[in-house]
Design a protein around this nucleic acid. Structure first.
Lengths: 146, 146
DNA sequence: GGCATATAGTTGTTTATGCAACTAAACAAA
DNA sequence: TTTGTTTAGTTGCATAAACAACTATATGCC
């Protein structure tokens, strides 16, 4: 008998992720107010390229937990915005390496600042210890299901 | 200086909600395996109607944390599937009250069972106490931002 | 009553997701 | 070299989300 049995009324909000929806909406709003016209999904791709430029689309799939069609189209849209460039790999011609443009590099500092600020709004009144446990739980859920 | 300042590398996954994405995908998969052809978003509307049948579309917006166009289209699709019916309110002719059909009532038990099972898969190895804290944190985040 | 305003719901447009089917290149075995 | 399989990426289709603009009804105030 599992010891985490949810009561009906509690289960729903845990599944539907209202909290992460709320964070994403607030971050999007904060981007918009700052005059930054990219979506959170596009930003999530840039985020990984800032950590390591020149990832393949497949690597972006793994990093962002999205499927291949999603990454194809996000990269399409980021190319239209002139924020990334696809460069065919020389070693393996099936692969596209995705590189940041100058424009995208300039977005890093400001958007990371806004993301931090958004998280601080979100976590107002939550203790450091609680946050650590919440992150652990979310990581375990992810590991259990991925 | 906020005491919840995130380190760069940690912040991202908290925002993008990989865990709730993973839970939703797994639940969708479990529905499909059981031969239940509804989306998680449609299920989330039915979930609230099972608790209280005959809600208005606006009430469904508040309950599901979705905007009005989203609910309009979810109800459209649920009507096509013959799972709900719109009934114009007699007191206020602007409102549609949304009612479950017999078909939808029959889905309740099986899908709630699948949802519980999915959460148990997700929370394997997580203690009851950790889950309680995670729920609290997510609730506080939601309250801070909604 | 008449007018301004608020509320409930719909429609159009763009972006994103999930799934299946597809192309092209790489690789492995004979 | 050919044949079969795997891997990287794209395309088509249905569903859903966010936002803005819209219609219709209700309400509050003069």
């Amino acid at each position: 008998m599992p010891n985490n049995q949810f009561k009906k009324g509690e289960l729903y909000s845990f599944i539907t992720g209202k909290a992460s929806t709320a964070i994403a909406r607030r971050l999007q709003k904060n981007f918009k107010q700052a005059g930054i016209d990219i979506t959170i999904e596009q930003w999530s791709v840039l985020y990984h390229l800032w950590k390591e430029d020149g990832m393949s689309q497949q690597q972006l799939c793994d990093a962002t937990f999205r499927d291949k069609p999603s990454i194809t189209r996000l990269v399409d849209n980021l190319e239209k915005l002139k924020l990334v460039k696809r460069v065919p790999s020389k070693e393996d011609r099936r692969m596209n390496m995705v590189y940041l443009t100058k424009d995208a590099e300039q977005l890093q500092e400001q958007t990371m600042e806004l993301a931090n600020q958004t998280l601080n709004e979100a976590l107002e009144g939550v203790t450091h210890g609680q946050v650590e446990i919440a992150k652990e739980v979310l990581q375990m859920v992810y590991d259990n299901l991925k």
